[in-house]
Amino acid sequence: MSAPVLAVRDISKTFGGIRAVDGVSFEVRAGEILGLIGPNGSGKSTLFNCILGQLRPDRGEVHVNSRAVSGRRACELNKLGVGRTFQQLSVFPQMSVLDNIILAGQEHTGTLLSRLFGKPDAGLTAQADQLIDFFRLRHLRDEMAGSLSYGQQKLVDAAMAFMAGPSLVLLDEPAGGVNLTMLAGLKERLLTYNREHGTTFVVIEHNMEFVMSLCTRIIVLAEGRIIAQGPPEEIRANPTVINAYLGG
């Protein structure tokens, strides 16, 4: 079996007296789409932030492609092949859609001199255009990102996460606030990208229909701990999960 793309080992994080994440361990294999679900306050976002270096865990380690990344800054993690989308809107509002997507890839190319004084398109326009077409944003290519609807900005956010060609993408509530039509399109795009590029996804999501139909495996968190994990159909039927999260 190949080494995991992401290995989370015994991560714990407390805020004051509250234990947000408590000894969480799991692995994600190449090409897998893992869903992280749980009620509000179960520690999903804290776990994401610990994985991405935005929070320093009190205990535990994170390995990406067999490299220990604990303590690394978020900008370094991006260069190791980790992309992320955000729960809240995360575009650069006063830049065009094209410029947003180019910017997401430009720190990965060129020499120090070209990164300092090179042209802002960084030779990435064609690649950005491919992603624009892939996410069906062609008609919005030159619009200011801040002027787009919430759902459109979510698509731009997703395109930005893929621009650097990551091996692992963490998607934080990609379905939040997106209308049903756009949501179906987003799911189809993510599945296609996963199939064509073998990119690994870890998804935090509250929309059960979306997460169950997108993911190949689900981990359920409650009060900072893993209470269940397995294929979506098992999770749906798991009495502990139903009791703690899904409800009757």
């Binding site: 995360s90 990965h108 070209s114």
Partner: peptide, 25 residues
């Protein structure tokens, strides 16, 4: 407006958290 560094500086001004995630120092 016309250099990569300048664009990164603008990105940091508009949304520093996201800029950092995208690899901007």
């Amino acid at each position: 407006n016309r250099t990569r560094t300048g664009r990164c500086m603008q990105a940091c001004a508009q949304n520093p958290g996201v800029a950092q995630i995208l690899g901007v120092d």
